[in-house]
Design a protein around this nucleic acid. Structure first.
Lengths: 209, 209, 209, 209
DNA sequence: CATGAATGAGTATTCATTCAT
DNA sequence: TATGAATGAATACTCATTCAT
């Protein structure tokens, strides 16, 4: 089981930072347009307007490109959720869950094509969920949320509950964006995802319209 | 979006049937041991004790091997669920859901390595869920289950509910087998998956121990 | 330099004769439609409605198929010329040459596609012109023609003259059918081919309209 | 009908130029020694002392190698003829034709083996004569020659005459090098080729010894 | 640091040919 | 004889990676 490929170096200079960004952007575009099979370092380099050598200056190998993209995605998603939870609107846990679901769905609808490949290709890499820093943060944040509403939720093992929630949230959001038959309306799907989570955490609670 | 690769010929004779089986078995083993990247037609053939030519006699290309494996997996999982639901034990919807979850978890624990790769690689192919016959059957079966218990369930759109249940069931079962941190006990996970489904379908219902 | 592949056996029975014909026909069609690269024994067999094994019963290898086709073509062309020369019309050598050219052009226009590939692929096989029986006959026939008109022709070495005539005739007829720019009329081409041959053999003779 | 394969990149730098040359030389040698069937990109690369990748850096596919070789051959032949015609010796059209024939025969005798395969394989590619730049130049040059001697020649359609001359010249020269039975002397063949062309263009003119 | 020409191991796929039935 | 499933050597082409400039 190979470990998560890491960027070769932590680029500190602005120029390098920019280079990394450019390469990652190119990777995203190529990946979105041509899928994993059609993506190769030479094309990425060309698309980034950079030489292959430069790509290898910052990424030790091809897979690290994808991994980095994933990490970026995870960070972005975490940021989205973080912001929404910080925004601490009114209402109880259900409202918070609804906020998260809506925010994530929105975020995913920005570049559906990219997320599509990202989701599709992710499992391709032996990157267990718990090796990503962003995923850790995500886990912690949700866990905190459950703690905060400890009184309202049914599951005993809060750790397990967090894990279940994350897994479910992830799949359903992705499925909604990628897979969902056209006959299901966006609102209904959103609603139902919330229902799944709320139903699990607060079985007795009344279900909103 | 390319359509599902189909076996090149429908083997009717026993000899051919056997050949297809052998090849598929070999594919499964190789896939489980070496992952997608490490799997190639020549190795599969060798492992099957068969010539490459024979592989291509029955499968038009490499991907069709994986696709066929998936279809087989889907069929098996459907069979498992079908049997369990036919076995119509006592109890309401919750009992049925519990039966399904337990049966699926058991089935997946037989060849965890294979299911791992299968799950990991599946999205890799542009095979939307609804192109697989087995998936169709699965959908129909679950939908019937919901119809049968129409009185007990909350979600209005039964089609959507079926979709949500399937997606959730699939991920959580796979996650349980592949991803789950060791600190979660098998029983707890199982219990919680049922809670997710039951909580969604029957929000008010009492949660069993 | 490999020698001309020969049909494995001289089939005497009607059934076999028919089989050989069928296979050769199929080869011709496949060759005409898909070119040499696209032609393979399995396709030929299928097209002939026969098993590959049967093909190998009568032809030792793939190339022998093409060779046989060539021999058939050569025979046919010889037959055409033979007939025309036997028909001994009025006029001198020029008339005879004109007869040959016209007959050959007509014959080639029947299945231009096939002749195209045949001509294209012929040199591909190490089959020098003088190994084909039909080519021998052809040579003899033309040589006789020159002997008959010995008094009218300029070239001293009648053997060489025959060779030159044959080479020229062959290319120009093929070029006329395959290559000729559309702006040249059929009649003009025909006329000019005759002029080439007549001009060579009877330099001083008046050129007909 | 596929178009002429083109070199993948137009090499401008000396290094690349050299690489292309090396590869082409190797192709020629391999082709001459093993024929088309025996020629494959890996062998060519090896023979060129270069990696396969480099071959593909400059030639998009195998066929483009052969095509490039042909073009080179055509250019060389054109250069030879061009030089000879520029050398404008004394004498009329017949002398010019004789010059061309002699020059071409000489040129072909340098690497007979290569020209053999080249000629043999040429038709194999769907490269009509008129797609090659060199062939165009050749056509133009010969056409000019005929114009220059317009007063002496019999054929009305000078375009057609050029075409006929080229076709005939090409075949007979190649036949002379490749096919000619040993019993024909080089000089006799040369003489007769000139006779064919001169007899066609200037039917009445006296035939030199 | 950036470049991009060069590398060459790796792989999917084809197809002539055989031979057990 | 006819069949056609099975064989497996052969080969075009790709692409991650390196390294001299």
């Amino acid at each position: 089981m190979k470990s998560l490929p890491q960027p070769r170096k932590m680029p500190r200079q602005a120029r390098s930072q920019h280079m990394v960004e450019t390469i990652l952007e190119a990777t995203a575009r190529v990946l979105a347009e041509r899928g994993y099979a059609g993506t190769n370092t030479n094309v990425v380099a060309e698309r980034a307007g950079v030489s292959v050598g430069s790509v290898y200056q910052y990424f030790p190998n091809k897979d690290s490109l994808i991994t980095a993209l994933h990490e970026r995605h995870a960070s972005q998603m975490y940021a989205v959720v973080d912001k929404v939870l910080d925004g601490a609107g009114a209402g109880g846990l259900r409202a918070r869950l609804a906020d998260m679901v809506r925010a994530l769905l929105e975020a995913h609808r920005v570049e559906p094509e990219l997320h599509k490949v990202l989701e599709k290709e992710f499992p391709f890499f032996d990157a267990p969920h718990d090796e990503s820093p962003a995923d850790h943060s995500f886990f912690r944040r949700v866990r905190e949320l459950l703690e905060t509403h400890a009184g309202e939720i049914a599951p005993r093992d809060r750790d397990l509950a967090t894990w279940i929630v994350l897994r479910t949230l992830e799949t359903l959001v992705h499925a909604a964006v990628i897979d969902a038959p056209a006959r299901f309306s966006t609102e209904d799907i959103e609603q139902n995802i919330v229902d799944v989570l709320a139903g699990y955490l607060m079985p007795g609670a009344p279900r909103a319209a």
